[in-house]
Design a protein around this nucleic acid. Structure first.
Lengths: 224, 224
DNA sequence: ACAAAAGTGTTGAGAGTACACCCATGC
DNA sequence: GCATGGGTGTACTCTCAACACTTTTGT
């Protein structure tokens, strides 16, 4: 039995692009054409033959933001019937973490407009994107706790206070300064650059992430 | 631009079916037709229109094993070009946990034979299934540590020693008996049935899983 | 000199880990 | 009565969490 004997769905890749700019933000595009014309949506596009899913995601990411070499992870594949009024469409969702310093917004030609939205003030979303986005946020928060993905949202160098603020923003809770510093320095995942950031008050040491660091910790065990 | 203007891939769902029978085992089917005729493969099939991905996975699972109502989780979507010599095929992989008591093997009509293989003695696999299977195993081991999925591989009632042996088999390490018992009883996820299992030696209390239990523990934090 | 942010240690509580012997049954 | 697997407690270590003052700079 040949492949052509089975009906085939359309397959898209959607990329939830997070950045940190005062608040945790997501890039959304305003749809130019029906369905959902004028509504906001997660950027995405059709997979092309001869291209891996990750390549599709990277292509979409570059089209929207101009960035390459950022953190990208497959999230989940959504295929419920009826999720797209145009017909049978399965979407493979990815999420990306982009430092706010690296972004250069450029609306793709299938979008009227691209904009960052704080995750605390999201608009109504097209398709089933209102289900997909919280899923991505949950995964991000979860990964943040046991891995070092948080650094992917920060510029190359940063102060300890900036790092702590980033974590507090994403996790939406406050952390103890001394405990935070002790633990992160003890983990050996960052190192001093030797430079300082000056401004109001005492200048702060600048740190950078050590990408040779093993930046993942085992989950706490439910059973011994 | 209409959906039909874009080329569409074939989409399959593959289900890695785990069970515990002395050792941790995986169900594989021997392919009847080319490509890879005669080779072993993860069971799977094409998604049908009007069906969710999870429904496809459940359908495949029931066709192969006759079971319903077992643990099923989406794993990852594989879409590398060239992974299927027949053409452009994307597969959404799921994994399932089946108690060995519940299984009733029945080869689907597209398979010559279905068999359980210990994960320590796997045959050569068709397609890119040799990449998919270790991925599933890693996810299973990982989830086992911070959630209670391990119970999904056990019969309804079990002794504490059986439970501990199950964990030891999957994690491939030995655990301390007293610590194991203290922690799992303290977690409140199992309860006595009142019945005993007799055999050689002192009879053992039988326990059952409490499905009202919150059986997930937070990951250890990398940072406070 | 004062405002503003950076930096720095200690203590108490709870969880994790290591470890060895008695108990109930079948043969 | 003995072989077989079931069941139990304690002490030490380490990690986690709570908490407040001094230092350095710019104005």
């Amino acid at each position: 039995m040949a492949l052509e004997d089975y009906p085939r769905p359309s397959v898209t890749v959607d990329v939830i692009i997070f950045t940190l700019h005062d608040d945790l933000q997501v890039l959304l595009i305003k749809r130019k054409y029906p369905p959902f014309a004028g509504m906001w949506a997660i950027p995405g596009g059709f997979v092309q033959e001869g291209e891996s899913l990750e390549e599709t995601a990277l292509r979409e990411l570059e089209e929207e933001t101009g960035v390459r070499d950022v953190y990208l992870e497959q999230l989940y594949t959504f295929g419920n019937p009826g999720r797209d009024p145009r017909g049978w469409v399965i979407t493979v969702a990815y999420f990306a973490l982009v430092p706010c310093t690296a972004v250069d917004l450029q609306a793709g030609d299938d979008a009227a407009e691209a904009r960052w939205f704080s995750i605390h003030s999201l608009p109504l979303l097209a398709f089933d994107h209102a289900d997909i986005l919280p899923y991505a946020l949950q995964r991000l928060r979860y990964k943040l706790e046991y891995s070092a993905v948080g650094f992917e949202l920060l510029p190359e160098t940063f102060t300890l206070t900036e790092l702590q603020t980033a974590y507090e923003t994403i996790l939406d809770e406050t952390l103890d300064k001394r405990n935070f510093r002790r633990k992160i320095l003890g983990a050996g995942v960052i190192e001093r650059t030797g430079a300082y950031r000056t401004g109001e008050g005492r200048p702060a040491q600048l740190y950078r992430f050590r990408d040779d660091a093993v930046a993942e910790v085992k989950a706490r065990r439910l059973f011994p």
